[in-house]
Amino acid sequence: MPTRNVVLHVADVHKSFGGLHALSDVDLQVEEGTIHAIIGPNGAGKSTLLNVCIGRLAPDTGAVVFDGQVITGKQPHEINQMGVVRVFQTPEIFPDLTLLQNVMVPAFAKRDGAFRLNAMQSVEKRTDIRDMALHWLEDVGLAGQKDAIAASLSRGDKRRLELAMGLVQNPRLLLLDEPTAGMSRHDTNSTIDLLKKFKGRGMTKVIIEHDMHVVFSLADRITVLAQGRIIADGPPDEVRGNPKVQEAYLGGAH
């Protein structure tokens, strides 16, 4: 396998909440253009890790380096403007806006930057933004409901909407927190297809997932977290056979 650029480097991150060590000595490298899955039992620190990556939580020690730049301590919008996009575990959408507007807002962030006082411009005239948004709504299969209010969607559809909101920004690094939780098997498979479609186009993906079907159909590399530590890291076949991983999963299940 040719060596690729490391696009995300979580360097010796430690984070504790009171006496609980949520993350200890986590050191993780994500290569450009790959799909990197992070798995682990409940409470292993997976979501904490993502929160550290997008600047929602500050690590106690260590740093997160994206594309050669330290991003710990930056504002969430600055991290996004660098090309890091997060899709949340509970859908974070704009419930009062239409689906089309939901996707147009992140498209504006991509085109116009973090702030622009374009109060005298007309949304109607920004067909570039509108077309981008429609394109992605079609890809997630929601174009037919573009004028519906987002709050009226089912949970699975809200996740797909949020995925479109992430993809429209054409991120360099997409962080997905259980993108298929709450979806039917059919929707799960179409989401897998969607994520595969954009594999290796300079878009790196980090996925947190419980569903092993999803993990093994997508991931190029898997990192296993248990009790805040990395216990295994490697290609899917290697991780599948790792006795420590089986112990963590089977042992945690009892």
Binding site: N80, V85, R86, E92, P95, L97, P106
Partner: peptide
């Protein structure tokens, strides 16, 4: 203002300010 991108961003802030920050808006 109501019909502008600026107005749309203000509505989005009302709807979910947290999402706005993670969407890249200050």
């Amino acid at each position: 203002i109501f019909r502008s991108p600026f107005g749309m961003m203000l509505r989005a802030i009302k709807s979910n300010q947290n999402r706005m920050r993670y969407t890249g808006f200050n």
